[in-house]
Nucleic acid binder design. Structure first.
Lengths: 233, 233
DNA sequence: ACCAATTAATTGGTCAACCAATTTTAGTCC
DNA sequence: GGACTAAAATTGGTTGACCAATTAATTGGT
C-alpha cells in the first residue's frame, strides 16, 4: 500500500531552473549568441540560491548548450533554438532508456566497431583484446561476476577501431548497459558464459584475420545471444 | 611570434582533482562500491576548497562513475577500475575528435536511424520531417545559412526511429558536427545546398514508403556527398 | 564634439560557515 | 550480556560574503 507513494519524482531545484532556462531559450527570449542574465539576477528572479543556478548552468554547459566566460558572462552557444528544444528535454533524461533501445544501439555501434577494428587493428590492439579476453575467462573460471571484464573486451575492440567518437559513445552507454545487466541479471549462469567466451574468441579471430564483415557478423550474433538471454528472464 | 604561447593549457583545479581521484581509483585504493573519502577530508588532503571537490564529484557523477548519496557519502558506482581508466581520460576529452571519426560515426548512426525510421515512422513523424525539410529549403532560398535546420531534419529522422538512445547519441555529437561545419565552411555554396535538398527529399520518400534499406542507402550517399565536399576545401 | 584613460559597477570564481539528515557511538534498561 | 534509545559526530546540501577580472561609465583632455 505504501508503495504507491514511492513513484513521486522529487524535482530538484536544479531541474526546475533548467526547465526555466529552457523555456527562456525555446520561447525565443534567448537566442544563440545572446548573453544569459547574470547568475545573481537569475537566482533572485527564480527565487533560488545562486549555487543552484550555477549548478544548472554547469549542467547545460556540459552538453555544449551554454558557454560561460569567466568574469564576463554566460552565453548561449552551439546550435539554435530549433534543436535545443529536443536536446534539453531528452539528453538529460538519458537514464530513462528502455532496454531494447539500448541493446539496439549497442548492436549498431559494436558491429560497426568490430568491422573497423578488423580493418585497422594494430598488433598492440590484438594483444590488448586478448588480454581482456583472458581476464574475463579467468574471472568466469573462478565463478565470479565478470561484467566489467566482459565490457572491457568490447571497449578494447572499440579502441582498435581507431574511431575516437565511436569509442566515446560506447563509453557513454556503458554505464547504462551495466545497469541493465544487473537489473536483468544477465550473465549469471555458467552455461551462457561459456558461450560468451567462445563467441569472444571467434570475434577476435576475425579481427586478427582482418575480416571486417565476418567480425561484424560474429559480433551481431554474439550480442543477439546476450539479448535473447536477457529477454528470457 | 606571440602565437607560440597560446597553446598553454590552463589546468583548472577541478581537472587536477579529477586526475587525483582517477589515480585513487585506478591504483586500486578505491574499488567499485567503496565509499569515497568525505569531501572535507579530500579538500584538505588535496589542498583545495571543498567547492572544487564537489564540482569534480558532480562531473564524475555525470558519467555514472560516482554516485553521491545525500547526507551519507559518495560511492564509486558503475563499473570497476578496468574501464574507468579509459573512460575518464577519454570521455572528458570528447571535443578533441577528429573530423573523419566524427563523420564516420555519424554515418553509422544516421544510416541505421534512417532504416529504423522507415520501419517505424508514424504519420506524425512524417509531418515533422516534412516540416523540417521545408524550413531548411526556405532558409536556403533566402540565401541564409541553415545549418540548424539541416540538422533538425536529421534529428527528426532519429526521432522517428523510436530509439531514444540513438537519438540521444545523435544529439551528443551534434554540437561537434556544427562546430566542424563552421570550421570547414561546409554548406556555404548554393550549388551543394540544392543537392542537399534533393537528397533530403529522396530520403524522406523512402521513409514514407517504409523502405528501410533504400532510406539507409540514400542517407549514406547523402552524408558521403557532404563529407566529400568538406574534404575538398 | 570626440576620444582616451581612469574609475565605478558588474561579472563569474572562490571560500568558509551554517544546516539538516544520517551514521556512529555511548549509555541505559531489560 | 544484548537490545534499544538518545545524543554526539560526521555527512553532503546550502548559503551569503568576498575576490579578481571584466565591462561599462565617467571624466578629463584635445
Amino acid at each position: 500500500m505504501l508503495e504507491n507513494f514511492n513513484e513521486i519524482k522529487v524535482e530538484t531545484p536544479v531541474d526546475k531552473i533548467i526547465r526555466q532556462i529552457r523555456s527562456l531559450i525555446t520561447s525565443g527570449q534567448l537566442n544563440s549568441g545572446d548573453r544569459l542574465p547574470p547568475e545573481r539576477k537569475l537566482a533572485e528572479k527564480l527565487g533560488v540560491s545562486r549555487t543552484h543556478v550555477r549548478d544548472a548552468i554547469r549542467k547545460l554547459e556540459f552538453y555544449g548548450i551554454l558557454k560561460t566566460l569567466p568574469q564576463s558572462g554566460t552565453v548561449v552557444s552551439g546550435m539554435g533554438i530549433t534543436a535545443l528544444e529536443g536536446l534539453i528535454t531528452d539528453v538529460l533524461k538519458l537514464e530513462k532508456t528502455d532496454f531494447s533501445s539500448l541493446v539496439e544501439t549497442r548492436v549498431i555501434l559494436e558491429t560497426n566497431g568490430a568491422r573497423l577494428a578488423a580493418e585497422r587493428r594494430t598488433p598492440e590492439d590484438i594483444i590488448q583484446i586478448e588480454k581482456a579476453l583472458i581476464a574475463y575467462e579467468k574471472k568466469v573460471r573462478l565463478n565470479q561476476t565478470a561484467v566489467e571484464e566482459d565490457l572491457m573486451f568490447h571497449l578494447k575492440i572499440a579502441e582498435a577501431s581507431k574511431n575516437a567518437v565511436l569509442k566515446s559513445l560506447m563509453l557513454i552507454i556503458t554505464p547504462d548497459i551495466v545497469k541493465s545487466f544487473i537489473q536483468y541479471k544477465v550473465c549469471d549462469e555458467n552455461e551462457i558464459e561459456d558461450k560468451v567466451i567462445k563467441e569472444h574468441e571467434e570475434i577476435l579471430e576475425h579481427i586478427v584475420n582482418g575480416d571486417g564483415e565476418a567480425a561484424s557478423q560474429a559480433m551481431k550474433k554474439h550480442l543477439k545471444d546476450v539479448f535473447e538471454f536477457g529477454k528470457s528472464l
